[in-house]
Design a protein around this nucleic acid. Structure first.
Lengths: 122, 122
DNA sequence: TCTCCATATTCAGAAAACCGAATACAAAGA
DNA sequence: TCTTTGTATTCGGTTTTCTGAATATGGAGA
């Protein structure tokens, strides 16, 4: 009977729209909290709470880079699970272009790091 | 954001060991409540409550046959979801032979319905 | 109609999840 | 060292889930 405890814990964690949205947002790779905040429209503290739960369960991992902390999904398996559940769901729009996030990775002016100096000449 | 509500509801429902065990027990096909009671070792009332939740969500459907009510999984998709989640879980034993359930389908003396008369001659 | 059996429903207390407000912390720059 | 910025944690009240106990229902046979 207890064999179902681990998967049940996983599902319980997935059984929440905000956490699902977070994981889905991390599909393409890691993102900083400020990015998730902007993209998902969630308050920072709330987001951080949900990230803590996901982190404690080992579903996501974090990495600090300067002031920002980047999260990524540690178990790609969750994507498979989510995908199956989303099978016959109405498809979400791919995403608007402007992240409105100030982290280094989100600055549209800095697509390639080696061009950073050129922008200052104007 | 609300696109994640339906899958979240599904996951929330799956986020419970007893309900997972029920669904897993219904893998091979339909079973009556008394069968589940015997196989899973759960009290009838409790089992019925969980079945009600699964039924309300449309995950399982019931069918009456005489005194017994047989349940089956309505959305095979859930098996896919569960399977992915169970991927690296320790495999459960296939099942002992004796169901200890009195429903017509579980009587080991009646493997094929057309032989029902022969057993009475002893 | 009465009774039995399989199953369903209601109720209620305990436990857990949810989520906002406030606050703490840690790195980076002045 | 002070401030700012990005993120984490704690606290507390509200809502939801969990689960046992009691009870109801509905079909089948006597």
């Amino acid at each position: 009977m207890e064999i179902f405890d681990p998967p049940a814990r996983l599902f319980k964690l997935l059984g929440h729209p905000a956490r699902l949205a977070i994981l889905d947002a991390l599909r393409g790779g890691e993102h900083c909290v400020c990015h998730l905040e902007a993209v998902l429209g969630l308050r920072q503290a709330y987001l951080s709470q949900q990230l803590m739960l996901l982190r404690e369960a080992g579903l996501v991992k974090d990495r600090r880079e300067g002031q920002n902390i980047f999260y990524h999904v540690a178990e790609p398996k969750v994507f498979k699970v989510i995908d199956v559940a989303l099978l016959d769901a109405p498809r979400r729009k791919p995403r608007a272009g402007r992240p409105a996030c100030s982290c280094p990775k989100c600055q549209p002016a800095v697509p390639a790091p080696e061009l950073a100096g050129a922008a200052l000449s104007t």
